[in-house]
């Protein structure tokens, strides 16, 4: 029980919030808007998976929002050329993986701190995108939206895909040696080296994977509207980091699991609509998001302080 204290307390907070909504704003539970809301969060959930891996390996990536924009534009451009969805998806994932590999080379290869490297790449990709795209939206061919399914069908498919990804990665993190290596490297890179694990290779792989997941998330996002917004990734990095930290992933590396992050993202994603339904102004979203991150790390800090005494 004690091991999952964080996950359980976040789940309790989510439950309390949902209960409050049920009491005071029951129309929150109307199926159609609820499904839309879930579908809209699906890409963020996929990005949060990658961020969880990155943070478990004791790194951080704040360039995911920019990566997301680049992947979306690449995917949108190819889709506008009427290429099939599979090609679009592969291209987007590939683009993400390359961008991730770039971070990975600088961080794992040169040993530069991930915060500054990804800060730099965040701006570089973002401005490159603005330069190339000048903020223009890309119109998608009609078959693209909802992947040719009905809206409800498409939304269901996206939510199912995101949850499936969480399940798959949760399984892999738990049951594949590669997943355990991520924990090992984040827990103690030197001990990992002594155990024959390659910390650099693992870190590089994590960043490539992060990029690939961003590519997937970008496609999951563009199929939800008739147009591609090149700025759709703004603030995504904070949301993903917040979900991971709130979900119990330790910023000191080596600890955390995806189900906690899943609940963490649900909690964060519910706060904003809850504010609206409970007639609190929505402008507080960012402040509350920051506060939630701080609360989560302060809770960890207090616990480790007490542990030391």
């Amino acid at each position: 029980m004690k091991r999952y204290f964080r996950e359980l307390s976040v789940a309790a907070a989510l439950f309390a919030l949902l209960a409050g909504l049920a009491l005071f704003a029951p129309n929150f539970y109307e199926p159609a808007p609820l499904l839309s809301r879930f579908a809209a969060q699906a890409p963020a959930l996929v990005v949060a998976i990658g961020m969880t891996l990155v943070i478990i390996s004791r790194q951080i990536d704040i360039s995911v929002g920019s990566q997301f924009g680049v992947c979306a534009v690449v995917a949108g451009t190819l889709a506008a050329m009427k290429l099939p969805l599979v090609v679009v998806l592969l291209a987007s994932v590939g683009t993400g993986a390359i961008l991730g590999a770039f971070n990975g080379v600088l961080i794992a290869g040169l040993g530069l701190p991930s915060i500054v490297v990804t800060l730099a790449t965040m701006v570089t990709w973002q401005e490159a995108l603005r330069l190339g795209q000048q903020g223009r939206f890309i119109n998608l061919p009609p078959g693209m939206q909802w992947m040719g399914l009905s809206q409800v069908g498409g939304q269901r498919a996206l939510v199912a895909l995101a949850v499936l990804m969480v399940a798959a990665f949760a399984w892999a993190l738990k049951n594949l040696a590669a997943g355990r290596h991520v924990y090992a490297v984040g827990s103690d890179a030197e001990a990992a080296r002594l155990a024959g694990i390659h910390p650099k290779g693992t870190t590089f792989g994590v960043f490539v994977l992060m990029g690939g997941l961003v590519g997937l998330a970008a496609v999951m996002n563009i199929v939800q509207s008739p147009q591609v917004d090149p700025n759709a990734g703004g603030g995504l990095e904070l949301k993903a980091i917040a979900a991971a930290v709130v979900g119990g992933v330790a910023v000191s590396g080596g600890r955390g699991n995806l189900w906690g992050v899943f609940v963490g993202l649900l909690l964060l994603a519910t706060i904003n609509p809850a504010l609206t339904y409970l007639h609190v102004e929505a402008y507080w979203e960012k402040a509350i998001q920051g506060l939630v991150i701080l609360l989560a790390v302060v809770a960890d800090g207090l616990r480790s302080r007490r542990g030391k005494r």
């Binding site: 040696a177 355990r180 924990y183 090992a184 030197e190 990992a192 155990a195 330790a250 590396g253």
Partner: peptide
């Protein structure tokens, strides 16, 4: 040289199992 965040069983396993991904 152990991993503080991992369980005893896993610490032992990481030393014994081949480091193939």
């Amino acid at each position: 040289a152990l991993f503080p965040d991992l369980t005893v069983a896993e610490n032992i396993a990481l030393r014994l199992e081949p480091a193939t991904a």
